[in-house]
Simulated assay, not measured.
Amino acid sequence: MSFADNLKSIRKERHISQEELAEIMGVSRQAVSKWEQGSGYPEVEKLIVLTKELNVSLDYLMLGEKEPAQNSRNLSNHMIVPTGKITIKSYDGKSIVNCYKVLASHVMYRAKNDEPKYWLIGVNSGAFWGEKSIVLGWYADEEKIKREMDEIAQAINNGIPAYEIKYAAKVKTNLLRVKLDEEL
């Protein structure tokens, strides 16, 4: 499949309209339409944003190469868009984020056995250049990240202004990788 076919297929699979994708990407709906018709391509910087927002590899987006098996599991991206904000304290207690959007997904790399397979990301709009994403927690299994998302959604629905991450795995950083810390 071509880039155009892949983009259209992934967008529809994620239940994102062309207008929504255009808004996320900071382009017009017509630009997204041209990409999906194969009459144009996004700039390299936009391709990188696309892979991040759609949670796919660049190889998969451009060439249709198979994703790692873990990305085909049951966890689809869950997005919560509250009418207001919720303040969330991160897994390590080093960040407190006013989130207007929370996203749970598979990590962007092929996780090894000693690495978390999922991450929870909080998004705020306080940055000068627009949205800023911050990792709120790392998770070894799908059940715990789903439980975390359910509790965040419940807090938002109940009008609770703050939430502290409860189910994140203990981790340590090793060079550029995040490892599960079994000693903690």
Rank of each mutant, 00 (worst) to 15 (best):
M1E: 12
S2V: 02
S9K: 03
R11N: 03
Q18Y: 09
Q18F: 10
E23R: 15
I24P: 13
I24S: 14
G26V: 02
G26A: 02
S28E: 11
R29S: 09
S33Q: 08
K34N: 09
Q37L: 14
P42D: 15
P42F: 07
E43V: 12
L47T: 04
L50M: 01
E53T: 01
E53F: 10
E53D: 07
N55M: 03
N55G: 04
L61F: 00
G64Y: 02
G64Q: 09
K66Q: 13
P68L: 08
P68S: 09
N71P: 05
N71K: 06
S72G: 14
R73I: 06
N77T: 07
V81D: 11
T83G: 10
T83V: 08
T83K: 11
K85T: 11
K94T: 05
K101G: 04
V102A: 12
V102E: 04
A104R: 04
S105W: 12
Y109S: 03
Y109T: 09
Y109K: 07
Y109W: 04
K112P: 12
D114F: 11
I121V: 13
G122V: 00
G122H: 00
V123T: 04
N124D: 14
A127K: 03
W129L: 13
W129K: 06
K132V: 04
K132R: 12
I134L: 06
I134A: 03
V135I: 04
G137L: 01
W138Y: 12
W138E: 05
A140D: 13
R147A: 09
E148A: 13
M149F: 01
D150I: 04
A155Y: 02
P161R: 02
P161N: 00
A162L: 10
V171N: 14
K172T: 14
T173F: 07
T173I: 01
N174M: 10
L176W: 07
V178N: 03
L184Y: 07
